[in-house]
Amino acid sequence: MLSKRIIPCLDVHEGRVVKGTNFVQLRDAGDPVELAALYDQEGADELIFLDITASSDNRETMVDVVRRTAEQVFIPFTIGGGLRTIGDIRRMLRAGADKIALNTSAVQNPRLIQEGAHAFGSQCIVVAIDARSNAPGQWEVYIHGGRTATGKDVLEWAAEAEALGAGEILLTSMDRDGTKMGYELELTRAVSRAVSLPVIASGGVGTLEHLAEGLTLGEADAVLAASIFHYKEYSIEEAKRYLAQRGILVRHS
């Protein structure tokens, strides 16, 4: 049967992995390609690189990271951050990425989802949504790395992304990101039920119990985590062992 996925996320700033709290206060966490290869060996199911600098002068650095990763890493990996055109997407896929995560550019130009899915297949178009709660049971889409509110409802936007041809949703709770309080389960469950696409839960993992909650109570297909793995609080193996003990189907390698 299909297993649940554990996905380490590498936030890349000027060619280095960094981690912040609530999208600010960056700390260095190592070389992206080295970390990616380590996670592959440890049994990570996929990887996501988010280029959080995302300025055009930095694009060359990121293409190089992708190219070097593709030489050493033999699990699927996704690239996101600052990709605005079909040409940007093509370049990353050619460099060796398997999937592309679109966030700000997808909100500003939803046709990019459609064109990307048409040109390269839905399987490689991931729509990343940064969500912030604005009332109980209601969440708003934010763009520009969480700096700009859009007025869009998260559940409606997720459904629209699916209709446009997205293959997967990467859902980050801005309220929880970097807090180690656990995923926002209500949000995750609501989005999982609003679409029939795989949903990756993101934002707020502090313990292995949180991973299990995201997959069970949150009804997510995959869980994303950054700091608990980067700072060696837990290894991927420990996480998988724990989830298996909880009766959750995970890949053992």
Binding site: L2, R5, D45, Q123, L197, P198
Partner: peptide
Amino acid sequence: RKVPHMGWNSLRLEQPSHLLEGIPNESY
């Protein structure tokens, strides 16, 4: 079911073969 079928699934070996030599049953 959700389509596409996306992610890691396990293999059930139905017959011995060259191509799957050394691959354990139920590997992902």
